[in-house]
Amino acid sequence: MKALLICEYLQGKLLESTYELLAFADQLGASKVMLLIGSEAQAPKFDGKIYLADAGKFGEYNPDLHKRLVLDTAQKERPDYIVFVHSSFGWDLAPRVASALKAAQVSEIVGVVDGKFEVPSCNAKMRRLLTPKTKQAVLTIQAGAFSYQGQDRGVPQLERVDLAGSTPRVEFIGYEAAEKKAVDLAKAEVIVSAGRGIGKKENVETIAALARALAGELGATRPVVDAGWIEHSRQVGSSGQIVAPKLYVACGISGAIQHIAGMKKSDFVVAINKDKDAPIGEVANVLVVADVMQFVPALTARLQK
């Protein structure tokens, strides 16, 4: 069994998540070969073969060109699996490769059970076990689900690959930096975050009062930010800030993977949710099953004493 692992590369840098692909292939028991569309200097420390397409020529992510590079490499290696990280790069490119190969795609794998792939469903409240029916399959793995122990550290053998003339349909113009953070939540010792479960903008003050009583900062989930209830610089998660406070209090937050990615390094997590099955329970040290707008004022009152 062979896996072709597609490296993650963004803005001139190899992303650490690339190593999770190696960990996944090991768990699957597959032999490994990689494709890096990037610079040689950034090649992962992998004791195996890496196909290298130079970023100087192919630039940053371009779906049409990258698809052809993956397909060319797959043609040479005939892998059973072509594996991406489930990221803005992977979820964009994987279905293009799968369609071209008429191969099954399994998205956002979190585990391997007897050679079958486990994926989350229903906002992580359920799991499904999938088996591809096609000979080759395209897979994406959830970021953070497979941790790399450094077993393959070494010097790769590089083989350069190139493409002859092609006109991509999507033209890359440039990057726009993330909004400047007015608040640096990474330094906060206590963060109290509001999710959509607080119900309305007027209720933000109740959550902010708890944050003050704990001498902490106010945080938020993305829908709360998108709705304009709390400013973006307080968003916690994969498209916001990554935080690691001593105490994180999640108020009316379901616990989507993109939110958890931002707060799972917290020392102690308290979640307040009316739903006992909410996935935030997976990372909470204490889950309080209650209406957040009733419970939070009661807690704040005790802390103010």
Binding site: A98, K102, A103, A104, Q105, V106, K116, P120, S121, A124, K125, M126, R127, R128, L129, L130, T131, P132, K133, T134, A137, V269, K276, D277, P279, G281, E282, A284, N285, V286, L287, V288, V289, A290
Partner: peptide, 20 residues
């Protein structure tokens, strides 16, 4: 292209305390 073998709730391992 792919078969769903089964669906199930996630294992509740390492869950913390629940207060109700």
């Amino acid at each position: 292209a792919a078969i769903t073998e089964r669906m199930y709730p996630p294992e509740k391992k390492g869950r913390g305390l629940v207060l109700e």
